[in-house]
């Protein structure tokens, strides 16, 4: 499955638009990571645990979007966008959406 945040694929023609597909994932970090983050709160710097967590979360959201795209019979998702929102203290939602299309 081709996933791209461009609106077109050079050299290929879109033969059918299949509408919006989306994937989302809400994750919270566990206490251990919070404690480390508390320390980082003093010293500053990268919160590696959170970086990885959000990375995994994003992969999951992409997978879900891909499942939706496969279900509607698409072979590519174009114009993909990411969005992150912290919905509660310590939990973040990763949302990814795009246009499912069939390429020739």
């Amino acid at each position: 499955m081709l996933i791209s945040n461009l609106e077109m694929v050079p050299g290929k023609r879109v033969i059918e638009h299949l509408g919006l597909v989306q994937g989302s994932s809400v994750r919270a970090k566990h206490v251990g990571r919070d404690i480390m983050a508390g320390l980082k709160n003093i010293f500053g710097g990268e919160l590696k645990g959170y970086t990885e967590l959000l990375q995994e979360s994003r992969e999951e959201a992409m997978q879900r979007m891909q499942l939706q795209a496969e279900a509607v019979g698409a072979n590519a998702v174009l114009n993909v966008r990411f969005s992150t929102s912290s919905i509660a203290q310590g939990a973040a939602e990763i949302y990814v959406y795009g246009t499912a299309v069939r390429l020739e």
Partner: peptide, 21 residues
């Protein structure tokens, strides 16, 4: 650029940083 020999792939990089005291 419209050149047919390019393959595409989504790439991303993320980082979470915290501010110090």
């Amino acid at each position: 650029p419209v050149q047919p020999y390019y393959d595409q792939a989504l790439v991303s990089g993320n980082v979470v940083v915290s501010v110090d005291y």
